[in-house]
């Protein structure tokens, strides 16, 4: 009896507040996408620079690793005096976290490209840019996308915590639910965050696998007649 009541409550909540829920999903996605866009713009060139120097890459990765180890709430607290409450602080912190995942994977991707392939490319007269676009990027792409997938999932999770500093998103449901001791909100927050992660994972996996097949030369080609 209690069970059926709870399930009914759960769906009634959606009937009543679906607009709010959708807005929170949209906010959540907005934060995640902003974080990822900024992160990629920083991480790819940074990885390329680090690719040139073994020493520099171990230093920078150590720093990024240390930053990644700071608990998110503490990180928010440190930045609030500088960036204030809300989205800017949340995005800044998340970008820093994501760098560790993205840079590590992107760098691994560039390093996985066989040196002889690059030498052949240089030897035939490809410029640095041509070599990057035609050879290095397509071959590093599976690793880069793998990092992106991990980063997306981590960001979706961490963004829920960003609600604690007023950044909005699905975390709002969780914190409200906790404060009001209202389980339905908490469950909705959890379910929606899970669905977002799951969907993002599935979609990115498709691209990742495709790029992996492409980089290995295993895609089936259409035979022209």
């Amino acid at each position: 009896m209690i069970m059926t009541n709870s399930i009914a409550d759960f769906f009634n909540y959606f009937g009543e507040y679906h607009d709010d829920l959708l807005i929170m999903v949209a906010q959540h996605l907005q934060i995640v996408l902003t974080v990822l866009a900024i992160s990629i713009i920083i991480a790819v060139p940074l990885s390329l620079v680090l690719y040139q120097s073994q020493l520099l890459s171990s230093i920078v990765l150590a720093i990024l690793g240390a930053l990644y180890a700071i608990p998110s709430l503490a990180f928010f607290a440190i930045l609030i005096p500088i960036c204030g409450l809300g989205m800017p602080t949340a995005v800044t912190v998340l970008v820093v976290y994501v760098q560790f995942i993205l840079v590590r994977n992107t760098l691994a991707g560039f390093k996985s490209v066989d040196a002889s392939i690059l030498e052949a490319g240089r030897g035939m007269g490809l410029s640095k840019l041509q070599l990057f676009v035609k050879v290095q990027l397509p071959l590093a792409l599976p690793s880069l996308l793998g990092g992106l997938r991990l980063a997306v999932i981590a960001t979706i999770g961490m963004t829920t915590i960003a609600a604690s500093i007023g950044a909005g998103g699905l975390g709002t449901l969780l914190f409200d639910g906790l404060r009001m001791d209202y389980a339905v909100k908490i469950v909705w927050g959890t379910v929606l965050a899970f669905l977002l992660s799951w969907a993002a994972n599935r979609i990115l996996l498709i691209f990742e696998r495709r790029s992996l097949k492409k980089s290995r030369g295993e895609l089936k080609t259409a035979i022209r007649n």
Binding site: D114, S116, A120, L139, K214
Partner: peptide, 8 residues
């Protein structure tokens, strides 16, 4: 090592 581009 030949160095053909494997994705092409």
């Amino acid at each position: 090592q030949i160095g053909l581009f494997p994705h092409m």
